[in-house]
Every structure is written in structure tokens, then in C-alpha cells.
Design a protein around this nucleic acid. Structure first.
Lengths: 135, 135
DNA sequence: TTGTCTGCAAAGCGTTTGCAAGCGA
DNA sequence: TCGCTTGCAAACGCTTTGCAGACAA
């Protein structure tokens, strides 16, 4: 990663990621940043996201086929998992990670775990209620 | 889904999916099919995969940023989860699903779960050994 | 024959890359 | 000044779409 230079593009991208309370895509970052930096290129965003990934500052999520989502790693060592409402597309936190026990048995068999991801899809409380009202 | 026609393309795609013991991509299906149907178009594969998804015959997985993977739904109601080797890209089965306990507590809070997905990435036994040999 | 399905070509879209100019240290 | 970083444009790879011809029923 060599010597890093603190460009304004880099600062903006990082601050947008820090403000986000859920994983966001490169296109969402782009949409937020163009008001302040109208000439920024998407490639700049992708290159900075790659750098942040390599520096272990952010995590990467594949929720659907086309876009990749990024989220700042929390301060402590904990990782997060998500519940996605298919109706309003909101992303909620999964309260805990049930994988720790199973991981040790997988590693006993020689598989080296680098990361894991849990994703639950469904309908959130609010959407369930408004769907009930509608019909 | 209207009236379905039983074309040879459709039959080949479905039989390849049935033979696969792990999620495979549209490109993998294409590579297997061109020996028998040299003129098949990738769009034909994508259109048939879409139809199979809508008919609930297959499931869809997003393991990485670029390719989508497809797997025949099992006969019984059980679902599967996967371990992916980042080196050789092989997909292994996760022996069990640790989410059942946690799901009930999520549903108690009003979230209606439609599906969940667990994914573990890392390096498999074989790749770990050959990496060791290489130095 | 009829209407679905296919192959082909082009387009769409997220992402990556090459390159010359810009700019932080 | 030095060389990392950026903007621009083009390329890349997966997937989608329009259309005329092919084919199952």
C-alpha cells in the first residue's frame, strides 16, 4: 500500500462511508459526492474502495447480482450481519452471529476461514403492518 | 408462466442443473452445453434460468461481485449453505444450518423471514497444501 | 398455423484499466 | 520535484433486450 496521500476525494469517500449506517454501493457514494466534487470519476471511487478493502478499513457485501456494497468495519473486532427487507429494502442488523461454534468444526477439517457472511431476507415489521392494512 | 414448450435447449439446461452437485454459473452451463448444442446462445441460457427461478425450480446465489450461481432446489424442504474456496473457487457444503435458534427470536420481533443465506469464504484443504508447497 | 422460443447482434450496466495531467508531501 | 492519484475514455465481462427466423404443439 506504500505511502498514502490524503486527497480530498479520499476524505470525502471515507466520510460518506463513516456516516452510512448500512452498506452502500459505489453508485450511492458517487451520488452523494458529486454535489461537493462535481468532476469526480467513478473509477476514483472504485480505486479508493479497493484501497480501503486492502487496508481492512471496510467490508464488502454481495446482496444482489449487480452491485457490491461497502461498510466501514466497526471499531471493535466484531463483525455484522444483516437482515434485508425485500419490500422497503432497509437493512437491519442481525443481533448476533451464530456461526462461531460451527466454524471450529470446519477448521478442524482443514478449511481456512477468511470470512463469513449471513444474510436473512424477508419482510420487516413496518412493511408487514402496512401490507396488512392494504389488503 | 403461460404455456411452456419443451425445447431441447430447455431440457439440456435442466439436466445440467440436475447433474450439478453445487451451484453453477450461466457460463459453466454454457461451457457444458456447447459440445451438444454448438449454436446455443447465452441469452437462451439466461432466459431459461429466469423461467426456472420464477417456477421455483432453482435457487440463485451471489457468491461474488460478478457471476450469479444457480442450483436445483432439493426435493425435500431442506436448504443448503456453502463454503467457497477463494483460490480454486470450489463450493463445499456447510454441514448444518446454525440459524434456526436465532430465527425464532427474530420472528418474535415481527420480522417475517422468507429466506436466509450463509456463506463462508476461505481456503480449502487442497489449496492450503499446494500453497504450502509453493512456498 | 400460431405463438413461444431461439440465435444473433447490440446495448446496458457495474467495474477495471491505460494514460496523461494534477497535485500532495 | 517526485510519484502517487485523479479524470477521462475506452475496455471488459456478465446480463438483458430487440428482432426476425425457427420450431413445438
Amino acid at each position: 500500500m506504500e505511502n498514502q496521500r490524503n486527497t480530498k476525494q479520499k476524505k470525502f469517500i471515507l466520510s460518506i462511508l463513516k456516516e452510512a449506517d448500512r452498506p452502500i454501493s459505489a453508485n450511492e457514494i458517487y451520488a452523494k459526492i458529486i454535489t461537493d466534487l462535481p468532476k469526480i470519476a467513478k473509477s476514483t471511487i472504485y480505486r479508493n474502495l479497493d484501497a480501503l478493502l486492502k487496508q481492512d478499513i471496510i467490508d464488502k457485501y454481495n446482496f444482489n447480482d449487480n452491485e457490491t456494497f461497502y461498510l466501514i468495519k466497526p471499531d471493535n473486532d466484531e463483525h455484522r450481519h444483516f437482515i434485508i427487507c425485500d419490500d422497503c429494502k432497509k437493512v437491519f442488523d442481525l443481533p448476533s452471529c451464530p456461526l462461531h461454534e460451527i466454524e471450529s468444526s470446519i477448521e478442524e477439517e482443514g478449511f481456512i476461514i477468511k470470512e463469513h457472511q449471513i444474510q436473512i431476507n424477508g419482510t420487516c415489521k413496518d412493511c408487514a403492518q402496512s401490507l396488512k392494512k392494504q389488503g
